[in-house]
Computed example of a mutant assay.
Amino acid sequence: MLITITSLTGSPGASAATLALTWTWPRHAIAVECDPSGGQALAVFDPGGSLGHRGMFEAMLAARTMPLPRALWQQAITLPDGTGRHFLLPGSRTTRTAESLQWQRLVEAVRGWESVDVLADCGRLRARGTPHAVLGSADLVVLVVRNDRHSLRALASSADVVREEIGLLGSADDGLVVVSQVSAGAQRFGVKEIDRQLGKLGLPVVGELPWDPSAAAQLTDTFNPGKRFERSPLLERARQLGLEIGKRAFARSRRLREPVRHVPASGLSSQREVVRRPQALPMPRPVREGEQHAGG
């Protein structure tokens, strides 16, 4: 399966979410850095540079003398989670080298890894060099959005643009799900309420990642975990989210690969679904201090 993780402008968290999900994924998985702004994860897990220069750009060079899937896999490193089944394929270190990558060719190559699920960090939507070929080829796209009034309103007002950017065919296409990201100091809304409102736009909310800067820093800054890292709120929630995301991606992957059933021309008009664009989306009510948090 190919699952991509992305975020809106002003809603960071795609990189931490990708690595947290990969770290806790129930099957063999590899985090692939497709962020056009450049990858940083190799420096987190190999700060001394003992592994040398690794990444997709180096794989493209090596593919002159070997198959690309093999060249890519040789560039991967094993994540130090103790399982031996979670990996990282570093991205390009700069925007310039990222722009030189042949994304469609890379997608076709990683699709050949049938025994491992691919979780691709695509950075922020509508950024310079967005890897549209990766987003459009995904079995499921996970959009990380900050749980605050401004970010949720921005997503609601740009739902059609987001789908177009990802390459989905209207609101009936279930290839996009939302994960809310709690941030410090912002009004927080209940997950069930966000799902109720965004669900009207065909944007189901599958869960929420907590505000856990200490655990997130281990994955995006300097890896020096303490004893509580494996039981941190971030990883605990990522384990739950991974099961739901994996289930949805697997179901859609099977459905997309089923043989197409031919519909008689006479029945097309009666089966065509009319999608009406909603007028306005009311914002969910914030969870106040001391109040039960709906959905989690």
Rank of each mutant, 00 (worst) to 15 (best):
G246E: 14
S269V: 15
R288D: 05
D148I: 07
V44Q: 01
L88G: 00
P131N: 03
V177G: 06
T22M: 02
A159V: 13
V162N: 01
Q181H: 15
S151V: 12
Q74C: 01
G136V: 15
L135K: 00
Q292S: 14
E291A: 14
H132R: 10
L169N: 12
M56Q: 06
P210W: 08
R257F: 07
S100H: 04
V32M: 04
L88K: 15
S7L: 14
L19H: 09
R153H: 13
P213E: 10
F87S: 12
S253T: 05
R27K: 06
S269L: 07
T24N: 13
A120W: 01
L198A: 00
G296K: 10
P36R: 01
R285Y: 03
A184H: 02
T220M: 04
L281F: 02
H86S: 10
F223K: 06
V178G: 05
T9G: 10
I166C: 08
A63N: 14
A251W: 03
E108H: 15
D195P: 04
F57N: 02
V205I: 13
Q181C: 14
E236D: 12
G202F: 11
S180C: 14
A159K: 04
F45W: 06
T130M: 02
A215W: 03
D195Y: 02
A217V: 09
D121K: 04
H53I: 07
L241Q: 08
I5M: 05
L168D: 06
R288W: 12
V274H: 07
S180H: 04
W211H: 14
F223A: 11
E289F: 09
M1W: 00
A156T: 04
L169P: 09
T24C: 14
C122F: 07
G170C: 11
F229L: 15
M1K: 06
G242R: 09
I166V: 15
G242C: 05
Q181D: 08
R27H: 15
F57W: 02
L88I: 07
V107R: 14
E208A: 05
S50P: 09
R126V: 06
V134I: 12
H293G: 06
E165Y: 01
A62T: 05
G296I: 11
A43R: 07
A127M: 01
L72H: 06
L235P: 05
P80H: 15
G84E: 09
R70P: 00
A20E: 10
V263L: 14
A41E: 02
A186G: 03
T222S: 11
E114W: 13
V142D: 07
D117G: 01
G123T: 01
D221M: 12
V142I: 12
G52T: 11
S15K: 10
A156E: 00
S214C: 10
R128V: 10
G267K: 08
P278H: 12
R163P: 00
R252L: 13
A120M: 12
R228A: 13
D173V: 04
T220Q: 13
G84W: 08
G39N: 03
Q40I: 08
E208H: 11
A154R: 07
G202M: 00
L256Q: 15
R196T: 02
R272S: 12
L135S: 10
A17M: 14
E33P: 08
L219V: 04
S7C: 08
S214N: 06
